[in-house]
């Protein structure tokens, strides 16, 4: 999983190309290199989650031992956490907005709020996993256990990395280390954050809602 950290951070942040620093927008597509690569990276991520979701769907209902999804899912709780994650997309939009208006104070504020909401979501997931484990669904218990924990775990790791990225942007902004285009950095993290949210909506629908 650590390697995912590598991609994420690489693409969220930047390197300077061979082109002159003073004209960062002189690209053939009009998108900056960073933004283009973030889009491409997210495209690639789609297939990562596509593979994991397919694995889960293939094995749906094929577990032999241990509790099944309908027996352990706590749909109201997960609905709340899904809603909280969606709210964090809203606060992320506000952060991007503030960043575009060069409003440092509110950018930091909204980034922090987004990170807190994300952390709340992950906290809910940790709680959920702990409960499931005590209810008899371990990682190695059944096909359902393995594929469920792998899929949602990968998503949880993505959210966690997103939180770390948000926090680091806040730190760096506090210490005035961004001298480039702040708005773009915030926007890149935002793109990633929205992607992770959208993936969750898909997971929530396919994994939690459909079998019940």
């Amino acid at each position: 999983m650590a390697d995912i950290a590598v991609h994420d951070v690489d693409h969220a942040h930047t390197d300077h190309g061979g082109y002159d620093d003073h004209a960062p927008h002189a690209t053939s597509t009009g998108l900056t290199n960073n933004k283009l690569s973030m889009w491409l990276f997210l495209g690639s991520e789609c297939l990562l989650f596509g593979g994991l979701i397919s694995t889960y769907m293939l094995y749906r209902g094929r577990h032999q031992t241990g509790p099944g999804p309908d027996q352990i899912f706590d749909i109201p709780l997960t609905s709340v956490s899904s809603f909280i994650l969606l709210m964090s997309s809203l606060t992320m939009v506000l952060a991007v907005n503030s960043a575009k208006r060069k409003d440092d104070r509110n950018t930091s504020l909204w980034l922090t709020i987004t990170a807190l909401l994300g952390a709340l979501f992950v906290g809910g997931q940790v709680y959920e996993f702990t409960s499931f484990y005590h209810e008899g669904l371990g990682f190695t218990t059944s096909l359902f256990g393995s594929s469920f924990y792998t899929l949602t775990g990968f998503h949880g790791v993505h959210v966690t990395l997103g939180i770390i990225m948000l926090m680091v942007v806040v730190f760096i902004m506090q210490r005035d280390r961004i001298t480039g285009d702040k708005a773009e950095v915030v926007e890149l993290v935002g793109l990633y954050w929205h992607f992770v949210d959208v993936v969750w909506v898909i997971i929530f629908t396919l994994v939690y809602l459909i079998p019940s």
Binding site: G43, G50, R62, Q64, L143
Partner: peptide, 30 residues
Amino acid sequence: LFAMPVITVALFLLSFQRNFGATFFDVNQG
């Protein structure tokens, strides 16, 4: 760009199975 994540998933499944006891390819588990 689009093929690597697929093999990444496959490799993760295999290494979770070999190193952490996941059941992805355990026929006795279905």
